[in-house]
Amino acid sequence: MSFFNTYGERLIDAIQIHLFYVLSSVFIGFVIALILGIILSRIPRYANIIMPLLSIFQTIPGIVFIGVLFLYLGMIPATVIIALAVYAIFPVLKNTYTGLMDVKPEYIEAAKGCGMSPIQTLLEVELPLATPSIITGLRMSTIYTVSWSVLAAMIGLGGLGEFIYIGIASNNNALILLGAIPAALMAIVLSLLIDGLRRLIVPKGLRSLK
């Protein structure tokens, strides 16, 4: 129990900071990815070149990105948030793009035939039909981001990674667990929440199709 007396308050702090990093960077990444995905789906010819280039970019490990941003921006939360947001973009972008491209042409033709403008077709037909795919991307992004947020501690910016780094450095079993378990739980809880969100916003008519 004394262990929790020592660390209890710091743990709550760390969880809050960690969650803040995750939510803000996933939110920013999601918005950017959604917009980019929509734009790319309008220009599939270029998207075929741009998507592979972006996936090359994706092979840069998060640690490098945080490290380099740290050198330029210094020890501020923005460093972590920008780096994580960049990583959160890709899964959502990829799923938004494929989700939109997979919308059957007959729906688009029917929409046109009904006299929907391109914007209306996008908002009322294409995006709703792509939501299952987009949300799957959001879920992946969130789980990754919880994991990558550990790196904030590498540049002294707190979060659950702090316990993990100290634990590894001092060979302290309990400290590593203190960081790892809440992080894993956070990933699981957030992905359950997103599953709930999916139930809420995936159009009802699509569910029985699966």
Binding site: V146, S147, W148, L151, I164, G167, I168, G179, A180
Partner: peptide
């Protein structure tokens, strides 16, 4: 996969 890689390695 939900366990942060670094934590997994530490454990």
């Amino acid at each position: 996969q939900t366990i942060p890689a670094l934590a997994l390695l530490g454990l």
